[in-house]
């Protein structure tokens, strides 16, 4: 699914228009725990989160997350925006809550890119 479609679906606003938004998102993950993102996400996902600190962007970068949506209309810290722009990661703010945002995307066919808990 194209990122532009995703932004529309979650009524989102792109916060760093200077980055390339013409990207394909293949799945989604919703988490406020960065360790969960690092542990469970598959590459090329979008991250839905309520956290706005710079670590969100660094985490996204390490986990090959393509774009980040802040739920509940949250605005990122200045430095978060700066790092994201430098690393070419689109940041979006959405008025939707976490459940609503994830639900809307899942409903339109965006699969979950969170893997289940490993059995070990």
């Amino acid at each position: 699914m194209n990122l532009k479609e995703i932004i529309e679906i979650v009524d989102g606003t792109l916060l760093n228009p200077q980055v390339d938004t013409n990207i394909e998102i293949r799945g989604g993950i919703g988490a406020d725990l960065m360790s969960d993102v690092l542990a469970a996400s598959q590459p090329d996902a979008i991250l839905m989160t309520g956290l706005t600190n710079p670590q969100v962007v660094r985490t996204a970068q390490m986990a090959d997350i393509r774009a980040i949506v802040f739920v509940r209309g949250k605005q990122p810290q200045e430095q978060t925006l700066a790092i994201a722009t430098q690393e070419n990661i689109p940041l979006i703010t959405s008025p939707c809550g976490m459940f609503e945002g994830c639900g809307r995307l899942h409903e339109t066919g965006l699969p979950s890119f969170e893997s289940n808990v490993p059995s070990d």
Binding site: P54, R58, T59, Q61, M62, A63, E87
Partner: peptide, 30 residues
């Protein structure tokens, strides 16, 4: 905390430039 992840970010970039496999690069990065 503000610079947390900068080193890892540079490491990941270095591995990509060295041509390491994306899967291995990702594991190292995390």
């Amino acid at each position: 905390f503000n610079h947390g992840g900068n080193a890892s970010s540079n490491i990941k970039r270095a591995l990509m430039r060295l041509g390491a496999d994306p899967q291995i690069t990702r594991r190292c990065g995390i």
